[in-house]
């Protein structure tokens, strides 16, 4: 399965910054309490906590048993600009790169500027893509082609449908969660999660 590297919204740097900010802003008190009651997170039955029975020695966090060795778990993207709120891509649109360029493999139709995706009015379904090869973890592949045909048919007036091929569906890969530090009950209720590893700063926007 080919995984879109842009699906994962955080890289390690942003995640570290977010955790640091959370600790500094709101949880300094219970941080100490959590450390006091920290449970052992070492090896359990010769495998790290959070790994299932299919764990193999040398398996990295987030790696599935059928992954190829050269696949990186999570397919983390290269460093990208950090938004003003400390996370990226703040205010970005799905399927669009932070610099406004189209996703790889996409090309604008004639007369369109490739960096003109700044407003809703400039988004429409005339985006076409070339034939692309998709491949799963077992190496099976197929050629898919697509052309924008969303302006015809019964959904032509649907605002979301008018966006057409600019928002291709993706298959997301969610890395396997590993056991980590927990917040104290009161702090966990306040943060909305007891798992420190899941406490991200939400920076999404409405469509």
């Amino acid at each position: 399965m080919e995984t879109n590297s842009d699906v994962n919204p955080f890289d390690e740097e942003v995640r570290a910054e977010a955790n640091e900010k959370l600790t500094a802003d709101s949880c300094m008190k219970c941080e100490q309490q959590c450390n006091d009651c920290m449970r052992p997170g070492g090896l359990c039955d010769n495998r790290p906590c959070g790994f299932g029975p299919n764990y193999r020695p040398g398996m990295n966090p987030g790696m599935r048993p059928n992954m190829r060795p050269n696949m990186r778990p999570g397919f983390r993207p290269n460093k990208k600009p950090v938004g003003p709120c400390g996370a990226r891509p703040c205010g970005g649109r799905p399927g669009m790169r932070p610099d406004g360029r189209l996703p790889e493999g996409w090309r604008p139709s004639d007369g369109m500027r490739s960096n003109s995706l700044g407003s809703d009015s400039e988004l429409h379904s005339e985006w076409n893509c070339k034939n692309r090869m998709i491949q799963d973890a077992q190496g099976r592949s197929m050629i898919i082609g697509c052309e924008g045909q969303t302006m015809s048919g019964c959904h032509m007036n649907d605002p979301m449908d008018r966006l057409g091929d600019a928002f291709p569906p993706v298959m997301a890969f969610v890395p396997w969660q590993q056991w980590g530090d927990l917040y104290e009950p009161e702090c966990g209720l306040k943060q909305g999660t007891i798992f420190k590893d899941l406490n991200y700063i939400f920076c999404g926007t409405r469509c």
């Binding site: 997170g41 359990c44 039955d45 959070g50 299932g52 969660q177 056991w179």
Partner: peptide, 9 residues
């Protein structure tokens, strides 16, 4: 639910 054998959990 997704980590039924995790001793820590």
């Amino acid at each position: 639910d997704t980590h039924p054998e995790c001793p820590c959990g």
